[in-house]
Structures are given as C-alpha cells and as structure tokens.
C-alpha cells in the first residue's frame, strides 16, 4: 500500500484511492439519475435554459459577464495594469532595463558589502 501513497512533508494521499472514490461517487450519481422519469422532451420549453422568467436572449449569454463583481472591486489595480501592458515596444524595453539595473545594483553592492 505504501507504493501508491504519495507523501510530501506533511501530507499523504493516494491518487488511486481518489480515483476509486470519484468513480464510486459517479456510479451513485448515475444510479440516482436512472431512478428518475424519462418522459423528457429535448425540444420546446423543457429543453431551454432557465433565465428566471426573463426572455431567452437570441444569441446566447456571453461568458465575459461571469466575474463582474471581481472586476468592479479591483478597478484601480486593473487601471494600473492596463497602463503597464500598453503594447508599446519602448515601455517593454524600459521594464527590461529596469530589471537589469535592479539586479546590477543588488548584486554588485551586495557583493561589496
């Protein structure tokens, strides 16, 4: 059994046991589903997604709207990030020269001290 138990410093788990557990859970879920009724029509009202009573939009819901709350609360951070990733080559060269200067200062003066 210790062959298949993967232990890091403080955690031990076995991937095969997890797969077995998930397989058992899927089997139980399938059994429960098979006990339902199967007079279910794919087309028509029963097959459409539920929009809380609103009208079904014609061209689908985009997934960009999924994380609106996150984007709204981090607006300042995203403004700064948009300025940083401006797409201009000169800014990119500036960031590289900044990295060189920081590493040089750190290493050269760290070596002297």
């Amino acid at each position: 059994m210790s062959e298949i138990i993967f232990s890091t410093g403080s955690v031990a788990w076995s991937p095969l046991m997890l797969v077995a557990g998930v397989a058992i859970a899927i089997a139980i879920a399938y059994l429960v589903r098979a006990m339902g009724s199967n007079n279910y029509k794919r087309s028509g009202e029963q097959g459409m997604a539920f929009f809380s009573g609103n009208r079904h939009p014609d061209d689908g819901i985009g997934s960009e709207n999924l994380y609106w709350g996150f984007f709204k609360s981090m607006e300042g951070y995203y403004e700064f990030m948009k300025k940083m990733h401006s797409g201009i080559v000169n800014d990119y060269v500036f960031w590289f020269v900044l990295v060189v200067v920081v590493l040089l200062a750190g290493m050269a003066f760290g070596g002297i001290l």
């Binding site: 990030m81 948009k82 990733h85 401006s86 797409g87 201009i88 080559v89 000169n90």
Partner: peptide, 9 residues
C-alpha cells in the same frame, strides 16, 4: 509609429 499598436493589455 510604435504608438499605433493593436495588441495591448
């Protein structure tokens, strides 16, 4: 011009 770029953010 380097400022007229289309790939950004």
């Amino acid at each position: 011009d380097a400022l007229k770029r289309r790939l950004k953010e």
